[in-house]
Amino acid sequence: MATHTLDITKEHCPMTFVKTKLKLAQIADGDILEVLLTEGEPLSNVPRSATEQGYKVLSVTHVEGNIHKVTIQK
């Protein structure tokens, strides 16, 4: 079970979740994806959208400044 990372701190809605979905499509079932994103829209939308679309959000942790890490299992 591999762990992958994705940095979408430079992206804006809705490309934040589009990029997340692309990465999730590219990894294997059961793999872990760690997504780095900023506060505000990305932080409120990406975990919610991932849950709505059937992915498992394992954790949301603060990294530094306005950057957070969302850990998603495919």
């Binding site: 809705p14 490309m15 589009v18 979905k21 499509a25 709505e52 059937g54």
Partner: peptide, 17 residues
């Protein structure tokens, strides 16, 4: 392409696949 088709990709039933 990601940008152009973003509204499709966002749909749960369509997505990247």
């Amino acid at each position: 392409e990601l940008n152009r088709y973003s509204r499709h990709i966002l749909l749960k039933d369509v997505g990247v696949e």
